[in-house]
Computed example of a mutant assay.
Amino acid sequence: MGDAEDGVGPKRTVFVTVGTTCFDALVRAVDTREVQQELSARGYTDLVIQMGRGTYAPKKSNGEDGSLVVDYFTFSPSIVDYLRSASLVISHAGSGSIFETLRLGKPLIVVVNEDLMDNHQTELAEELAERKHLYCARPQALYKTIADMDVESLLPYVSGDAAPVAKHINRFLGFPDD
């Protein structure tokens, strides 16, 4: 396997998503030299940031100096292709982004937006981290989470079968069993 720096090695992309929100703290955190150097040291080659409604624009890089190739965009009709091609996903704590990433079997770091009033996203992220399906971080601790992570130790997330629940609800509502 060649080195990523010589352009021969495998492309390993980190995809960052903030969804439709403004989460400049996350974008700023991944735009630091410290975080980017740690990602590069771990073999990642590219950083693609979906910055949503944020106002902070990260620095783009073509990777010529051996650093990560960095690009960003605001919105996309679908981020599924970005998620599929990612080697690591760093996401806001939105349940859609979390479960789509886990369904695809991608290593995931969820960064909690402490500026949001509703705490259910934090609870979800912390519960899934406790079950070892993902890592959970605050923006200011993202570097440490990346430095300490072992993606091989994450457990696959297996979604539950909703059919029994749907059947029970249908019976309760008086619909016939199929």
Results as ranks from 00 to 15, higher is better:
58 P>F: 09
25 A>F: 01
43 G>D: 11
98 I>L: 01
136 C>F: 01
113 N>S: 06
97 S>F: 00
19 G>T: 11
124 L>A: 09
24 D>T: 11
137 A>R: 01
15 F>M: 11
69 V>Q: 10
47 L>H: 04
98 I>W: 02
104 L>E: 09
41 A>C: 07
103 R>S: 14
82 Y>D: 15
123 E>H: 06
18 V>S: 08
54 G>N: 08
84 R>E: 14
26 L>D: 06
138 R>W: 02
123 E>Y: 02
103 R>V: 00
5 E>W: 04
41 A>P: 04
21 T>C: 05
89 V>T: 11
44 Y>D: 09
43 G>Q: 12
22 C>T: 15
99 F>M: 14
45 T>H: 04
108 L>F: 02
132 K>H: 10
82 Y>K: 13
122 T>F: 01
30 V>A: 09
7 G>N: 11
134 L>M: 13
134 L>F: 04
115 D>G: 13
90 I>F: 00
120 H>N: 11
131 R>Q: 15
78 S>W: 13
76 S>H: 10
118 D>G: 00
130 E>D: 14
47 L>D: 07
125 A>L: 06
97 S>K: 02
122 T>Q: 14
3 D>N: 11
29 A>C: 05
112 V>L: 13
129 A>V: 06
120 H>M: 06
4 A>M: 13
76 S>R: 13
62 N>C: 11
128 L>H: 01
102 L>D: 04
43 G>I: 04
71 D>Q: 15
64 E>G: 10
34 E>T: 11
55 T>S: 14
14 V>P: 01
37 Q>A: 12
58 P>T: 09
14 V>T: 12
36 Q>K: 12
59 K>P: 03
123 E>W: 02
61 S>A: 14
9 G>I: 07
13 T>K: 15
97 S>T: 03
122 T>W: 02
21 T>I: 00
46 D>Y: 05
25 A>I: 00
101 T>R: 08
23 F>T: 10
71 D>M: 01
29 A>Q: 09
128 L>I: 07
26 L>W: 03
123 E>F: 00
134 L>S: 05
63 G>K: 06
93 A>E: 05
55 T>C: 01
95 S>E: 04
48 V>E: 13
55 T>M: 08
129 A>H: 02
106 K>I: 03
34 E>A: 12
118 D>N: 14
53 R>M: 14
50 Q>E: 10
99 F>H: 13
106 K>Y: 05
133 H>M: 07
79 I>F: 00
20 T>C: 10
53 R>E: 13
110 V>S: 02
37 Q>W: 07
106 K>G: 05
12 R>N: 08
